[in-house]
């Protein structure tokens, strides 16, 4: 566990060192959420209608929306932080160095994600959360914040498990960026992140159960704003914990499988083969691409299946 915290600490340090080196970018990065959250303060009353209030059980629709919106950047880093990192490591060859180090590779990729999420929270999402809390000041309580943030953090942990799986997929298929678009839309519309699930058709609510993040967002809103929940509260907690355990185990298994496969075949040739119409197909490359890859990575291992 100390290894995990050391990794998270140093990766966060690295991310901040990189960010602070380019002041203009950093200043703009910090100013941008501040400006948007300020603008939000002005726009919120327009959205807070009676119809919406009765659907979600709170009049603080602005805060309700902000708590969901702040999840967008976490969703992005949690799902793609590890994947992007491996993509870069494969391109530069750093992966050989990091995988020949004695740290746990699962802890390594999980730390990449958590450190990205921490940096995102401190630098970019804090203003949105601050405005959400300000708007909800009327109903805010310390215990509400504590429970709400617990659900929030658990959601990020659930997401990071999917992120670990996507990182493994990056090792297998090298470029999985189009998956992002699919999951991005699913996460934004099926979790009630932007449009409350309460006002959407019943089948969307059923589908939302299978999307990690739904329970986390709903619970954090419920505890912070006293809003109504889509499903009974105990059921949502149980769902969140089950997702964490289930996806955690899945990501451990998938990552372990890919890691052992990488040790068998070399990182550039870690792939799975699918039998299709009785014929084996490599999923990632045409023969021409394989030939080009041979040229670029002449001494790299070749697949052994």
């Amino acid at each position: 566990m100390s290894e995990f915290f050391r990794l998270v600490g140093w990766m966060t340090w690295r991310r901040l060192a990189e960010l602070f080196r380019y002041r203009m970018n950093l200043v703009w990065g910090v100013l941008s959420p501040l400006m948007w959250s300020a603008a939000f303060l002005l726009l919120v009353p327009l959205y807070s209608t009676m119809e919406m209030s009765s659907a979600i059980g709170t009049a603080d629709y602005g805060a309700y929306l902000l708590l969901g919106l702040s999840m967008i950047s976490f969703q992005s880093v949690a799902l793609w932080g590890g994947s992007n990192n491996f993509n870069w490591e494969l391109t530069t060859g750093l992966i050989d160095y990091s995988f020949s180090s004695p740290v746990s590779k699962y802890a390594y990729v999980e730390s990449v994600i958590i450190s990205d999420a921490l940096v995102s929270l401190v630098l970019y999402d804090a203003p949105f959360l601050a405005v959400a809390f300000y708007l909800a000041a009327r109903v805010l309580s310390l215990s509400g914040i504590a429970y709400g943030m617990t659900a929030y953090v658990l959601s990020i942990l659930v997401l990071s498990q999917i992120g670990v799986t996507f990182s493994a997929l990056t090792l297998l298929y090298k470029n999985v960026s189009n998956l992002f678009e699919f999951f991005n839309m699913a996460f934004q519309f099926l979790t009630g992140m932007i449009i409350p699930l309460q006002v959407l058709p019943g089948f969307v609510r059923v589908a939302s159960v299978f999307v990690p993040l739904t329970f986390g967002i709903d619970l954090s809103r419920h505890y912070v704003l006293s809003s109504s929940t889509v499903f009974p509260v105990p059921l949502e907690w149980a769902g969140l914990l089950l997702q964490l355990i289930g996806l955690g185990l899945t990501s451990l298994l998938v990552f372990g499988f890919v890691e052992s496969r990488a040790r068998k075949n070399g990182f550039q040739y870690v792939r799975v083969r699918l039998a299709r119409r009785g014929q084996a197909h490599w999923l990632t490359r045409s023969p021409r691409e394989s030939a080009l890859e041979q040229r670029d990575w002449p001494n790299e291992g070749k697949h052994t299946d």
Partner: peptide, 19 residues
């Protein structure tokens, strides 16, 4: 892994460029 050092083939790209 605890006993070794490693400098691989693509080494001169394999560090953080902004550090």
């Amino acid at each position: 892994r605890r006993s070794i050092g490693y400098a691989g083939q693509d080494s001169e790209k394999s560090a953080y460029w902004r550090l």
